[in-house]
Design a protein around this nucleic acid. Structure first.
Lengths: 105, 105
DNA sequence: CTCAGGTGCAACTCGATAGTTGCACGATGC
DNA sequence: GCATCGTGCAACTATCGAGTTGCACCTGAG
């Protein structure tokens, strides 16, 4: 997959309110799909689908312990996405500064 | 709109390869919809739709100059999204450190 | 005035996605 | 062994989203 498509997949995974809530919960502590149902008012299967999307984007990883699967955050992709957004913002500000400099000369 | 829904809207707007390419282009210089068509191999109307999505998320703003509409980046939302991602990553690392400390005591 | 370039709006197709229900399977506790 | 808890898989609905074509409307240049 191309680098831009991969980036888009990560952002798309972040582009759903329920998934953001799941991610927010997982920031505080790992949890299983059934545990996450309580604060989401959707079914367990829907939660499981969201977790698969998040896992597909590399934002989260699940590991089986006994009969439950605990999902925990995987910060690498989160940081990568944050860094790209910073680059976009910084690049733009730099361009604005260059335009301003040109106008003053 | 709730804060989480708004965040999701921003990330959803970023969750498409063509929109990422548009954003990348706009980082370097403002452009109109028809100008953006050249490096995207989709129609002008599709580009216009993407621009409306980006504008709806507050990532971009268009202003009419003569008979064309120049779109330029709006870094505020970009920075806000980056900051939230940083918070997620930092919060998780902090939790990991706390768990480690607890295990060592 | 006329014509061309740039936008905008509307209707349509089609694949992806969020959500559901129903059921089957493996691991745990008694 | 057996009831149960947590998962996983499959089928289905319905909505959203990306992309297209076609047409109408302004604005600027000759």
């Amino acid at each position: 997959m191309s680098v831009v498509a991969e980036r888009a997949e990560v952002f798309a995974a972040l582009g759903d309110p329920n998934r953001l809530r799941i991610l927010d919960h997982l920031t505080r502590s790992p949890a299983s799909a059934t545990a996450l149902v309580e604060d989401l008012e959707i079914t367990r299967q829907a939660v499981a689908k969201h977790l698969r999307v998040l896992e597909g984007a590399g934002l989260v990883e699940g590991a089986r312990t006994g009969r439950e699967v605990r999902f925990e955050l995987r910060p690498a992709q989160v940081e990568r996405a944050a860094r790209w957004l910073d680059d976009v913002a910084v690049g733009w500000e730099r361009r604005l500064a260059a335009v301003k400099r040109a106008a003053e000369s």
